[in-house]
């Protein structure tokens, strides 16, 4: 298919989105990622029944935590697709990149630069 998606995205594989916890998303932002998003299977089609529903709730919780400390909860998002939807994967990557560009860089990066200076 040779589809292109923004090169700024780093893919981290997980056995199931149900394995992803709130702390994983927070650490990504804490370490300086401008955004982090979870791509799970279609709702209702999880091999483990409810892994992607668990992920959805955890993403919502991570958003709440980030909002509560002024980091912008929208930096973390959840998307769903089937493994056969390559074009959708690339579209989500572009959409997320645009969303994060609108939000601007992660404040942690600026804070870390300040520390270094």
């Amino acid at each position: 298919m040779r589809l292109e998606y923004p090169a700024n995205i780093k893919v981290i594989r997980a056995p199931c989105t149900g394995k992803i916890d709130v702390i994983h998303l927070l650490r990504a932002i804490e370490k300086g990622a401008d955004g982090a998003y979870v791509v799970g299977c279609m709702e209702g089609e999880c091999l483990y029944n409810n892994g992607n529903f668990r992920a959805k709730k955890r993403v919502l919780q991570a958003q709440k935590v980030l909002d509560s400390v002024g980091m912008g909860g929208q930096r973390v998002q959840m998307y769903n697709l089937s493994s056969a939807e390559g074009p959708k994967f690339a579209a989500f990557a572009r959409e997320m990149t645009e969303k994060i560009r609108e939000l601007g860089p992660n404040p942690m990066k600026l804070a870390k630069k300040g520390e270094a200076a």
């Binding site: 916890d21 709130v22 804490e30 400390v69 002024g70 404040p107 942690m108 804070a111 870390k112």
Partner: peptide, 21 residues
């Protein structure tokens, strides 16, 4: 332990954003 990790991460981000070490 999980909640400790989440709270610590959140507070680190909050204070870093405030420019506080």
């Amino acid at each position: 332990k999980k909640e400790v990790g989440v709270l610590a991460s959140a507070l680190r981000m909050y204070f870093a954003k405030q420019g506080r070490q």
